[in-house]
Amino acid sequence: MVAIDQTQTTRSGGADAVISVSGLGIRFKRNKRARRTFKDLFASRQRRTRPGEFWALRNVSFDIRQGEAIGVVGRNGQGKSTLLKMIAGVLIPDEGSVTVRQGVAPLIEITGGFVDDLTVRDNVYLTAGLHGMTKRQIDAKFDEIVEFAEIPGFLDTPYKHLSSGMKVRIAFSVITQLDEPILIVDEVLAVGDKAFREKCYERIEQMLANGRTMFFVSHSERDLKRFCARGLYLKAGELVMDGPIDDVIDRYNDDYGMNTLPPVEGDAA
């Protein structure tokens, strides 16, 4: 479930880089209903942009070393989530490459793998299993997962009967117990009540302290500063800045500060 290494060139970005992104680009159709031909479908990976398409990300390169916590900054539609999805391996780039050298625990659409009609217990085994855990590993972690989610007594309830808060809690609990060295977080923390959110934050901090690598997308300045040391600033699909998180946030605030009107450049993805 790692190594999305789809492409020709894999520039080895330093010996200890766990995530290497080089020359990354992906384009989307501006108009979903644009005419599509069979040729279109198969002639992928051409460098030229066809009319009606735009590059959601282009020429993005960076390396992440083991244990780094990276925050991605940018306004809506500037390619943050797209970048995250390519690192998680659920999107494939049109050019360049993403190389992920260790296992990933993706906190993206965390409830995606859960099946409404199955019980919570079955769902835990299913989702953890799809993310690569064996049955024995899940057995060993099961109590911990359930305890963290604070839903004892609901184990044999069909998943659809849980409240939305419970659904998110159990999903978060499963993914963070995956024991993978890389954690990818996409603003999921905005859900859940305050107490549980704080618990999630503590869990993430604890994981970071254990040497996990984290890739984090958020609009919350506070959260970014709390977890991350390094920031990436995406603007109109380009990586405009890669540096210490405080500097990146300052630059972002300068660009879209309180006193200046947000510029209109860069179409929404």
Binding site: M1, V2, I4, K85, A88, G89, V90, V104, P106, I108, E109, I110, T111, G112, G113, L130, H131
Partner: peptide, 9 residues
């Protein structure tokens, strides 16, 4: 769709 979007398999 939900599962394809959230798990890399």
């Amino acid at each position: 769709a939900k599962l394809v979007r959230s798990v890399s398999l």
